[in-house]
Amino acid sequence: MLERSIMQSSGFRNIGPTDAPSGFQLRVRLPNYRGQRLSLVDGVDVTVNGERFDHADNLIAVGGKTYDLATLRTETENRWPLDELATVIVAKPGGLSVGVHRVEVAVRIRQSYIPIEFQPSVISETRTATIVF
C-alpha cells in the first residue's frame, strides 16, 4: 500500500557522496484518478523550508528511467501508473540537513478533457518529512 499523502515518508534522502551530497530525492504518488503517459506529466515543483526547486530543473525517475523535463514531454509510450511511485531528483549542493523539513510538492499534469486555458492542472500538498542521515 502507498502512503495517503502525495509525498511519501520513505525515500526522502540526500544523494551523492555522504560527505558532499549533490542534492536530495523524494518519492511521490500520482495525484490523479488515473495513470497517464509521461508526456502528460509536466514535472514536479518542490519547495523545502521556503526554498523553491522548479519543475524545469528537477529530474523524475519512473519505470526504471530518469527524465529531464524535455525528455518527459516527448515520452508518449511509458506510463506513470497509479500504483507506482515516481522519484523526484533535486540538485542542491550540500543536500538537506538531518532532521524535519517542511516540504511542498506540486505535481503538474495535463488532461486533454479540460480546456487548455486551465492547463496544466497543478496538484500541491505540503507536509513535514524527515531526512534520516
Binding site: R34, Q36, R37, S39, L40, R73, T74, T76, R110, Q111, S112, Y113, I116, Q119
Partner: peptide, 10 residues
C-alpha cells in the same frame, strides 16, 4: 478510457 488528444506537444 481516454482519447488523449494532447498526448504530443508538437
Amino acid at each position: 478510457c481516454w482519447i488523449d488528444t494532447r498526448l504530443r506537444l508538437d
